[in-house]
């Protein structure tokens, strides 16, 4: 039986894993290769590494971190942040990523999705969507959530899928960093509208939140960053609780 995936996300700044609340008060949470290996040992089904600074000046640092993280990681590994063109994606794959995540660049140039998918396969292209509730709908924001696009999240997810995206990583900006639960309404709206997998992100705080996003939100995978750092929620413990709640998970693994 296909299991629901638990994805650990590492936010990286200048080659170090950092954690703060809504990108403020960043605390050093360690070396990306060590963090990724620890999460994988603990039962993470995939690792996502997001370069939150992603300026062109630190590409070398970023690629070095990707290479060292990929070196002894044998679960799927996604890298995002600052990928604006095919060559950026190629460099990240060459450093050892299995998938790349693109966000703003895909909104500005949707053909980037098909260019990367055409060369590396759709399974390697994750389109990340940051969505915020505006009245009764969900609007797509880009540039780290600073710029509204006027686009509807579900419609954009459908277009991204049609362009060759292999998965959608859907972040609720309203819930991100709050640890008060995923936005199941948002996740379900998108998950039911497209045939590719949806990774829910933003708001994870407890095992109950994961049960709800899989059951009510129809998510295929759920991603969390903050709760998996500093031992707040242990992935192995989370998987035991999901298993007990009859959510299929890779456990034991």
């Amino acid at each position: 039986m296909l299991t629901k995936r638990i994805i650990a996300c590492l936010d990286m700044d200048a080659g170090r894993v950092v954690k703060g609340v809504q990108f403020k008060n960043l605390r050093d949470a360690g070396n990306p290769a060590e963090c990724a290996a620890a999460h994988a040992r603990n039962g993470a089904d995939e690792i996502v590494l997001l370069d939150i600074t992603a300026t062109s000046g630190n590409r070398g640092t970023m690629l070095h971190a990707v290479r060292s993280t990929a070196h002894s990681l044998f679960v799927p590994f996604t890298v995002g942040g600052g990928i604006r063109q095919l060559d950026d994606a190629a460099a990240v794959f060459d450093a050892g990523a299995d998938k790349i995540a693109i966000n703003s660049a895909a909104v500005r140039d949707p053909e980037l999705i098909s260019r990367i998918a055409g060369r590396f396969g759709s399974q390697a292209v994750v389109v990340a969507i940051d969505a915020k509730r505006i009245d009764r709908s969900f609007e797509v924001f880009i540039a780290g959530g600073r710029v509204p696009t006027g686009r509807d999240a579900t419609q954009w997810a459908q277009e991204a899928a049609a362009s060759g995206a292999g998965e959608i990583m859907l972040t609720s900006m309203d819930r991100d960093g709050t640890q008060c639960g995923f936005d199941c309404e948002l996740v379900r709206a998108v998950a039911e509208a497209i045939s590719i997998p949806v990774i829910a992100s933003g708001g994870a705080g407890s095992a109950r939140d994961f049960v709800e996003v899989f059951r009510d939100g129809r998510a295929d995978a759920a991603l969390a960053a903050s709760i998996f750092h500093f031992g707040i929620e242990n992935i192995a413990q989370l998987k035991r609780e999901l298993h007990d709640a009859s959510i299929p998970v890779r456990w034991p693994c």
């Binding site: 296909l2 998965e167 590719i196």
Partner: peptide, 10 residues
């Protein structure tokens, strides 16, 4: 079922 089939299966 959704396609592609992505993830860990037994």
């Amino acid at each position: 079922v959704k396609s592609p089939h992505v993830g860990w299966n037994s």
